[in-house]
Each structure stands twice: as C-alpha cells, then as structure tokens.
Design a protein around this nucleic acid. Sequence first.
DNA 1: ATAAAAATCGACACGGTGTAGACTTTTTCT
DNA 2: AGAAAAAGTCTACACCGTGTCGATTTTTAT
Lengths: 204, 204
Amino acid sequence: MPGHHPARGRRTTERKGDVRERAILDTCEALLARKGYDAMTIGDVAQGAGISRGALYFYFGSKQEVVTALVARTVEHLWERSRATAQTDDPRQAIATAMHRTVELWNEHGLVMRTAIDLSLTVAEIGELWNHTADLFIAAITAVLERAGVQAGTAPDQASAMARALCWMIERSFYHASQESREKLQEASATCEHIWLISAGLIT
Amino acid sequence: MPGHHPARGRRTTERKGDVRERAILDTCEALLARKGYDAMTIGDVAQGAGISRGALYFYFGSKQEVVTALVARTVEHLWERSRATAQTDDPRQAIATAMHRTVELWNEHGLVMRTAIDLSLTVAEIGELWNHTADLFIAAITAVLERAGVQAGTAPDQASAMARALCWMIERSFYHASQESREKLQEASATCEHIWLISAGLIT
DNA sequence: ATAAAAATCGACACGGTGTAGACTTTTTCT
DNA sequence: AGAAAAAGTCTACACCGTGTCGATTTTTAT
C-alpha cells in the first residue's frame, strides 16, 4: 500500500541492525547449545546470522561481547520475572512458589545460565551480571528465613549467611540437574526445597 | 666421581624427564594462579619450565593434557588424604572433622580445585576426575546422615539426595570463599557445617 | 664404547581472532 | 524526490597461539 504513513509519535523505525543483532544473539544461543562455547567460532555465528565475519564485528567487538550480550538479555528476563512475583505471608508457601519459579527459569534458560556461570570467572562483565542475579536470590531467601523465625544477621548461623549457602546449593544442584533432564531438575528442586524448609525450622 | 656405582636393587634412575614433567606441572600451577587458564599459553609454561615449546609437546600432547595432569596430581592427593581419615562414631564429631579437613584442602589446593571445576565441562577427563571426587564426598556425607538417623534412600528427602545437595552447597560456597580469603573460607565452613547439622537433625 | 632410547629444538602449517579500508544500502533531512 | 549522512557490509590482511615434523643432541643401558 503505497502512500501509507505509519502512525506518528511513535518510533516506527526498527533499524535493520536491530533485527540483525537479535539474529546474532539467537544464533549464538543455538550454537552454544549445539557446540559449546569453546568450539563455537565467530565465523559460525556470523554465518548463522547470514552475514560475514567482518560485518559481525560491526555489532560486537569480540566473541566475549556477543555472549555477554546474550547473557545480559537472558538475565534481564530473569529480573523482570522475579520482580513480577507475588509475595506471600506464609513462608512455606513462599518457598514452594520460589522453587517452582526457579525450576521454570532453569528449564527455559538453563543453557545460558550455565554458560553465564562458566564464564563468570573469565569474563568480568558476565561475572558482575551473575553476581547481581545471585544477590537478588540471596536477598529473597534471607527475607523468607527471617520471616520463618531465623535470627537476622550475618553470623554463620544467621539468616544472611545461611541464605548465601542455600543459594549456592540451589545454583549448583540445578546447574548439574538441568544438564541431565527435566525429571532430575524436578528431583533436585524437591531436595533443595526440603533442605530449605529444614533450615528455616519449618520441618522437624 | 668416576667408577661410582649407585646402589643396586633399587631404581636409582629418576629419568631426567620425570624432573621436567614435575617442573612443567609446577610452572603450570604457578601460571594458573598468576594469569588464569585462558591467558596462560603453552609457550609460557615451556619457558617457565626451561624448555622450548616443541620440547614440551614431548611430554604432553596439548594444553588440556597438561592441566589435566595437574588436576590428576592434586586430586590423587585429596583421595589419599581422605582415605587416611579416622572414622568417628559420633556424627557431630564426624561432621566437624570433615569440615575442618575440607577447609585445609581448599586452603592448600583451592586454585587447582577451582580450575578443575571450571574445566569440568570442557575437558571430559577432568570432568570424570572431579565427578569421582564429588562422589567420594557424597558417599561420606550420606553415611554421616544415615548414622544421624536420616532415612536411607534416594527420594528427595532421604539421605542420598540430601547428601548430593549438601555436597554442591559446600563445593560452591568454598569455591567462592576460597577466592576471597582464609577468613571467608572459615566463615563459609561454619555456615555449611551449621546447615549440615540441621539437615542431619542434630540441631533444633 | 656404543647403540638404542629419551629429550630437545627450530621451522612450519593451520585456524581463529580482530583490524582496515573501500564499497553499498538505508535513513534522514529538505 | 534527491542529496548528504549514517548505518551496514565485504574482502583482504596481520597477528598469535596451537600442534606437527624431522633433524639433532643428550642420556641411559650394556
């Protein structure tokens, strides 16, 4: 329909580059799943996205930047979801829904989350991204523990320190389980939930 | 002293290569600490060991093989130590000594252990090494839990599954803490011990 | 002393990364 | 619509680290 003016007052223009950028990230995610980080080459990603290597470097300055952007995209999604979570008064209920949501997260984004964890050491920016994510989780766990009656504070047997340990337990358990199968993930979740409940003093 | 015969009946011959091999591994460990795995190059290691790159490839077929050998050397040390551990009947005591020993292990070999964990995914052989090590720990934890009265079995709330989760909790907590300082490691240990005790039902 | 085995080296080929500069397409402004 | 600017694309190249090869030297055993 020639002569058609798209609505004004709103940025209609989606740069061609925006589409490409998404294509690059999508390809990166797919290749990460198929070949893993080391085996995946910039050339592969470029080819998958339908451009040449040189063109890719117009968008990202390095292989690390590409995967950092991918992690950022995913992690942003996590934050959004976690912000949208309804709060409950009952700690038992809070724990159950938190674990359930976490299972969903890992089912959906397990690959990128594992990659983020793996690269946290080597790629500083990814490390920060993941640290921040972990801090959100730790804060949430701390809150639940305190509401369940665990003494607030940072001593080894108080809420804050315990929350950190529980967070790492969940991270690592899910990291391994999500590589195996959804069933294993479900089992790991049940176990972590159980230990969390015990630690909160909600189970004998 | 010409004509000197080294004592017989005992393998006096330590191949020159044996010394070199040790030198290579030692250098590798030092460089790993200084620059990290990615930044460390085969050339660096060779230079540090006082030989050329070409000569290094006489000993090891690849960079991965070098670090795999280093991990193997360290892990063997762990196994030895863990075999030599006295058993106690009192679960509380068993947990305390286990955590204490683990702190020592991480203080001494934290760097290599972290490297092993990082490379578990990419280098299959290191993965197996570390898995086996983890299995030893899990078995030990399981035994203690059962002796403390936790029901044996693999269901999510039974000894085996809980031991696995606790193992990951300890691994991850120590992984992070050992990067910071001995104090942090000590604190992390106290927290993990506390959660372990609660999970075993030895604390209200 | 000598022959076999062990160890060493320098040169080379390969593959992946990242850069440079020329060129084309798209967007923006009037 | 049309020109200038901005955005996007490509090919070629330089660099670096890995791993291989064959020739050579050193060590070891007899």
